[in-house]
Design a protein around this nucleic acid. Structure first.
Lengths: 257, 257
DNA sequence: ACCCGAACCAATTTGCAACTGGTCCAGCGA
DNA sequence: TCGCTGGACCAGTTGCAAATTGGTTCGGGT
């Protein structure tokens, strides 16, 4: 394989000059390098030669550049989509389940240790409601409220914010139908029983039992999700997929470096 | 207790006019009301009287207002806790450490299972850099890059986003000084050694060891944080708090939207 | 070949103007 | 005295144009 833009005499000279400048700048606390045009003029070479040298330094991880921003020292800072919609585009149900399996057992454990009596009262109340609701929308609502109350009872506002973030992604319209199919029939009854066990453990302040019960519940949920996603479509379902399920896969973007 | 700004004749007249306008607007699908100045002129009263009427409607939940934006129909939209600034105000370093203790061991475990060889290469490279950097800012940068690379290697974009969220809160200017004090001296060397152990476990694909090593590292970090926050200031430190801890909290305005 | 200068493209930042709600004040009138 | 108005000013938001910067292409010179 051939390098489309190999180092040259002028670039190598620039490399030396730049390394010196980098050392000087970092010792002065400077985070930003001058613009390319200025740098090229200062060193006395053309911009193209300078850019070849900068590419080397960037590959080494000593600098990072971005169009319109500038050239900076150190490793490239992390870019995070704080936007929920963007985030929802880059993830998928199984990823979300993996995250829930990490977060919610911990929330249940913390809730067992730190829930107020008022929290526990609300949880017991919710457990009844969940069991008695009949329609799918109602189940969704009570289920969501139950999990969120546990997250509140854990008494960590940051974890609660994280839970909310995950929950919002879960609420995505595209995924609702999926969950509805996954919890139909006798599975719903098992859900109710598992919820009861989690709440009982929290009420009795058994942290480990609460964590374990929540983990088992979520693993059961994940299993149901897998079954629904892998089984063939039943006959009465229309042949073509909804557009939302088809188009979303192509605008997936890279997030590594 | 007395209302500082009770309704008056003019305001009561405006209230009736406004309720009519609200009904009309909502039926037309209009979400936004005209600016106060225009509204006052149209109804034929002063702005002060109009604002009293608007306050009533706002208290009733029929409208909501925001400086610079305007006046809108319906209930005030839920303020998203995804806002990093607001989130940073509602949490504190110990909460963040609790969350890191839940998330990052899981990330290390996943990384041990799913890291590519390229990931491991980068981790080894970063470990050297962290050990060799001398100044505090440099340590912060490389340390942050190390933890993030582990998060990337875990191969779950949602968990990565959560990690980034926590990391940004950690980067808050107010807390930097705290961490700097907590890692000075021989603790830094222990950090380096613990990092090495985590990376070694990941490189050897020992999931449980990686999780445990990361947990131990973070518990050590938390312990250092506690020590710094509870111990009295040493003699050579000036009596008054550094300005960064006092002033920075109020002039935090825009980072991005 | 190699390099330079110039020009252009694209992403970002910055500064400014306009607009909006929030607040205060002097003055008018019942 | 009290309520109200109009005006002025402050503060937060939005939109836009200009300036800045890295990314790219092209022609000409050495």
């Amino acid at each position: 394989m051939s390098n489309p833009d190999p180092p040259t005499d002028s670039s190598n000279f620039a490399l030396g000059q730049l390394r010196a400048l980098l050392d000087q700048s970092s010792s002065e606390g400077e985070q930003r390098l001058p613009p390319e045009r200025e740098l090229a003029a200062r060193i006395g070479i053309g911009r193209r030669a300078l850019r070849r040298a900068l590419e080397v330094l960037e590959a080494e991880g000593r600098i990072w550049r971005h169009q319109g921003k500038g050239t900076f020292l150190g490793p490239r800072p992390a870019q995070t989509p704080t936007n929920l919609e963007e985030l929802a585009k880059r993830t998928h149900p199984l990823e979300v389940m993996d995250v829930r399996l990490e977060i919610e057992p911990a929330l249940a454990r913390l809730a067992a240790m730190r829930a107020t009596n008022g929290d526990i009262e609300r949880l017991l109340h919710l457990a009844e409601k969940t069991a008695s609701s009949s329609d799918a929308d109602g189940r969704e609502l009570w289920d969501s409220a139950l999990h969120r109350t546990i997250a509140e009872a854990a008494g960590n506002s940051l974890l609660l914010a994280i839970f909310d973030m995950i929950d919002r992604i879960r609420q995505d319209a595209t995924w609702r139908l999926l969950r509805e199919r996954a919890r139909s029939g006798e599975r719903q009854q098992i859900y109710v029983e598992q919820h009861r066990r989690v709440i009982a453990a929290i009420a009795q302040r058994e942290a480990h039992a609460a964590e374990q019960a929540m983990r088992e519940h979520l693993e059961f949920v994940r299993e149901g999700l897998l079954k629904v996603m892998t089984r063939p479509l039943p006959d009465h379902v229309d042949g073509h997929l909804p557009e939302a399920l088809v188009t979303h896969s192509k605008d997936r973007i890279r997030h590594g470096t």
